[in-house]
């Protein structure tokens, strides 16, 4: 049985926060820094890109976060196959900021959905090369199992396509993944607001990675805080154990000693229909 206060551990690193924050698309570096602070995130993601040779301005993200003690999770976005992902991962590692890598391989520009086969191939190779690999994957329980077998340090199923804010499109799958997984499950991509974060945590996720819903919120700093509280609330709620769903009301005030007959008078007539429905049957 998981404990409320147990720490998330990935690749041998114990993490204080279960919220991972992406650093893209923030309106400016100051808002990024404040959002990072408000989110309490310890793991941050970023991308590897070509230096703009036409501009003298330094648009590197590291200069804005260097003075914090963080775990760096560079991604392989922009890779269309395993070879490219491995190349990007090696470039990221050469920067000397650790050996974590978020495997992100996409070939479809409309959905940016991860290519499952290339993601699996890249994960196998990166694990062999000594990386702590966290593949961003489709919410497929079998694929997540294969990624775990390939040595992934965590699996990161998407709730919905990146940046859509559609929330968790397949809670059933996500629940299965959380239930079966022997490595941490970090729900990544597609979340829209704190509500989706709570849902993911209640479904059994071990952590959340958000970027766009914070960076593009009207007030990114407030949303960063909302995400932090949602992770905590969702986690506690999942641990506390929810009540089973029932089709009809059961009074929360005692029916004993009611002054008038009211709704309880016909009680015996509907007794049979009030039978508890199995929680499993109505699970969302």
């Amino acid at each position: 049985m998981k404990r409320y206060d147990s720490q998330l551990e990935i690749g041998g690193t114990k993490l204080r926060s279960r919220l991972f924050l992406g650093t893209g698309r923030f309106p400016n570096p100051a808002v990024l820094q404040q959002s990072l602070e408000a989110s309490g995130a310890e793991v941050i993601t970023f991308a590897v890109r070509r230096v703009n040779l036409d501009s003298v301005e330094d648009d590197s993200v590291l200069q804005h976060v260097e003075d914090r003690s963080l775990v760096y999770l560079p991604n392989t976005s922009g890779a269309g196959n395993a070879d490219e992902a491995v190349r990007i991962a090696k470039l990221a590692r050469a920067a000397g900021l650790g050996n974590w890598i978020k495997v992100e391989i996409s070939r479809d520009e409309r959905t940016l959905l991860p290519d499952p086969l290339e993601t699996l191939r890249a994960t196998e190779r990166l694990v062999r090369e000594g990386f702590v690999a966290l593949p961003y994957t489709s919410d497929d329980p079998m694929l997540c199992r294969r990624l775990e077998e390939a040595g992934a340090a965590a699996v990161m199923p998407g709730g919905a396509p990146i940046g859509t804010g559609l929330g968790i499109l397949n809670p059933y799958n996500l629940g299965l993944i959380a239930e079966q997984s022997g490595v941490p499950v970090i729900v990544d991509a597609g979340l829209g607001s704190a509500q989706d974060v709570v849902q993911a945590m209640e479904l059994g996720a071990d952590g959340i990675l958000v970027n766009t819903p914070v960076a593009k919120a009207q007030d990114p700093v407030a949303m960063a805080k909302a995400m932090r509280l949602a992770v905590e609330a969702g986690r506690l709620s999942a641990m506390a154990g929810r009540i089973p769903r029932k089709p009809y009301a059961s009074a929360s005030s005692s029916t004993e000693g009611a002054l008038f007959g009211g709704p309880y008078a016909a009680g015996s007539a509907i007794e049979g229909r009030r039978a508890e429905t199995s929680a499993e049957g109505l699970r969302r």
């Binding site: 893209g24 970023f46 040779l53 993200v61 990146i162």
Partner: peptide, 9 residues
């Protein structure tokens, strides 16, 4: 290739 880190999710 001359690369560095930029914001990303």
């Amino acid at each position: 290739e001359l690369v560095h880190f930029v914001g990303g999710g």
